[in-house]
């Protein structure tokens, strides 16, 4: 048990004060999602890992945990993409270039990059799950020779909800990226796949020993994706998932993010499937 006497005065931290960041660019991507590029004071790097998150602060409303969407290889600024679902996120819609936002973080554990070098990376992104995975994707693309295949499965409800369409086009054209996009419901102009994201998995030809899967999406998606990957015989330890929980502090204090006894903001949000399998509240 940690004792008061073991804590030196300089180890006691002000955990709840945000750093004010300038929005250097912002763009509404879809009806619901807005993208922001932010700069820390003095253009310092955020120093994050793909998969980590920050607490975004808008005074008068509060804070929300938001994934970092840009790759650590991008210097001088970082990016967020926020879906407008409630009080805070709807207010953020009004924030434009030149405004300031408070940021705390980066928090949590991201993807274990060291373990991923040399491997085939299989990205499974459902809806807004592409936001954190884009950080990993761009990291792989910026260090392309360090990784094997890059396979991206991306599913959205309908074509108008597809995020980062410019980047999707670029990825589509690159011959070192295998991109498969699907929508639950197409529209008359949609020529791509329709169906839920799991329908893309059976056709994949995977090198099982070499493939590491990174999954992020709405809570209901995980069980089905994991099931399909398991039926392809992908070992459990090759599967990483990023879990969303309610988070207030991001620093292991407020208790909101617990999955059974595990603090999602500390041990996660990215988990190896082996570690969460025994947790009844995880999936």
């Amino acid at each position: 048990m940690k004792r008061l006497q073991e804590v030196k005065s300089n180890e006691a931290l002000d955990l709840y004060y945000p750093t004010m960041c300038e929005i250097v660019d912002a763009k509404q991507l879809t009806d619901l999602e807005k993208w922001y590029e932010l700069k820390l004071p003095g253009g310092q790097d955020l120093g994050h890992e793909p998969g980590q998150f920050v607490e975004v602060s808008a005074f008068g409303i509060g804070e929300a945990p938001i994934s970092i969407s840009s790759s650590p290889s991008k210097e001088g600024s970082f990016e967020l993409c926020i879906r407008q679902v409630g009080t805070l996120t709807k207010v953020l819609k009004r924030y434009e270039k030149g405004d300031t936002l408070g940021i705390r973080g980066p928090f949590g554990k991201g993807y274990p990059i060291e373990k991923m070098y040399g491997k085939d990376i299989l990205i499974v992104a459902g809806g807004i799950g592409l936001v954190p995975l884009r950080s990993l994707i761009n990291f792989v693309l910026d260090n392309r020779q360090e990784f094997g295949r890059l396979i991206i499965l991306y599913g959205a409800k309908n074509p108008s909800e597809l995020l980062f369409t410019d980047e999707l086009d670029v990825w589509q054209r690159r011959d070192d990226v295998e991109l498969h996009v699907t929508v639950d419901q197409g529209d008359p102009s949609w020529e791509g796949n329709t169906g839920v994201i799991t329908t893309l998995i059976p056709e994949l030809d995977l090198n099982l020993n070499k493939t590491i899967a990174a999954i992020t999406g709405p809570p209901i998606m995980y069980k089905f994706v994991v099931m399909s990957l398991k039926s392809k015989q992908l070992p459990d330890s090759h599967i990483y998932l990023s879990l969303e929980r309610r988070m207030k502090c991001g620093v292991g204090k407020c208790g909101h993010c617990q999955i059974n006894g595990v603090y999602c903001c500390q041990e996660g949000p990215v988990f190896n499937y082996v570690d969460i399998k025994p947790l009844e509240e995880a999936l």
Binding site: M1, R3, L4, A12, L13, L15, V251, G252, K253
Partner: peptide, 22 residues
């Protein structure tokens, strides 16, 4: 209080709690 010390001071130690407790 000894248990709270652990909760608030292990991992990242929180200054608000620490200062009140010191």
């Amino acid at each position: 209080i000894l248990r709270l010390d652990h909760s608030m001071l292990s991992g990242k130690a929180e200054s608000n709690y620490f200062n009140r407790r010191k």
